[in-house]
Write a protein that binds this DNA or RNA. Structure first.
Lengths: 198, 198
DNA sequence: CATCCTACCGAGCAAGCGCTTGGTATCACA
DNA sequence: TGTGATACCAAGCGCTTGCTCGGTAGGATG
């Protein structure tokens, strides 16, 4: 451990607060999670939370912003701009599904599921990041329609895919019969029929 | 209006309570909706609610049970057991999407979105109805896999479809470019490629 | 050595919550 | 005309909520 920041527990208090909040918001919901629950989990008094965050909603905002930024990072790392539209679609689906079902799954669930709990101002701010994330999707799907890989409207297709992938958090089990890549392949097969691309 | 039941407002108080509760649970969420909000909306005092329902959660239970039962009714009315698996799939998708996006949409959203707010006992009770609703889906999808209309796992396919359709509540606009039947057709096309069935 | 800052404690406030209780007006029915 | 049931009001209880506030221990900095 370093020289400062540890009066109690392991690691910087603020990030431990964020981690526990993510977990509690996920399993109990934002509204049903009290600041006392959160403080107990972290090992501090409830009032001390407000030394780090100005309000309970500021915690939700921080959780969501972290979630969105790391999602963007993963997308940028995984999508090859030189690849074909079909390949990029496969990459986009893999990243999004992996984000929902992997380590960042709880944060992603909070991001999507607790969106209405955010104030209008916070929503507006985070929508800028969200739009940035959606652009590669728009491009890949539009190209797939243009070259005949995908039938129908690309915007509707994106919405349908987003719903299907997000919903996987409610039923996916890491120790189940289907692996993450199995599901990814099935989604790709359903969206753009034909032999699956790499 | 009949002879009894109207002391105030229009129609039986219990059903008005249920209607307003559905709306409030949808737009504000169950937890953020207070019995005082609900009472004000209906035009009675907050305490009077507990003459009709034993608890706030009992209201949620009633909303969800009504929602599930009418969903089952619509399914039964719309699905032809004599039709091919592909046709039945089309019918099932139409019913589910129509339920999400039509008049019963708010109740459906509450049913899916507020499920974690229900007590374990209530969940157990309603799961019996839900299982009944899922059976025709299982059969149609299993048949589609058997006859080659659908590739992949039928259980995963059902989960993906359910997510895609439910998510439509967040983006569908009745006055938008895509009609309900347009979206239904696109989903069918994506799930079972080939010429769309009636 | 004094000063400042950070991170927290301990106590508690005001507001809001679900729900209870006791009472009353109105009806159906005997 | 009396009785019981139904549908509601008026008041408020006990508890929990998000958040505030004065104080303090301890490291860093002049």
């Amino acid at each position: 451990m370093a020289q400062k920041d540890i009066r109690n527990g392991h690691g910087p208090a603020k990030s431990r607060l964020l981690n526990k909040a993510t977990h509690l918001f996920r399993v109990r919901g934002y509204e049903r999670t009290t600041v006392r629950d959160l403080a107990r989990e972290v090992g501090i008094h409830s009032g001390s939370i407000f030394h780090h965050f100005s309000s309970k909603e500021a915690i939700l905002h921080a959780v969501m912003e972290d979630s969105l930024r790391s999602l963007l990072d993963r997308q940028e790392a995984a999508v090859d701009p030189e690849a074909t539209a079909r390949e990029r679609l496969h990459q986009l689906i893999r990243v999004e599904l992996g984000s929902h079902l992997g380590e960042s799954g709880e944060a992603m669930s909070v991001l999507v599921g607790e969106w209405p709990s955010l104030s209008a101002e916070s929503q507006k701010e985070l929508l800028i990041l969200r739009d940035r994330y959606e652009r590669p999707w728009e491009q890949a799907l539009a190209e797939c329609v243009a070259n005949g890989d995908l039938r129908g409207d690309p915007v509707v297709a994106r919405k349908l895919i987003a719903g299907a992938l997000f919903h996987a958090t409610t039923w996916y089990r890491p120790d189940g019969a289907m692996s993450l890549e199995d599901i990814t392949r099935q989604v790709v097969t359903m969206v753009v029929p034909g032999s699956p691309a790499g």
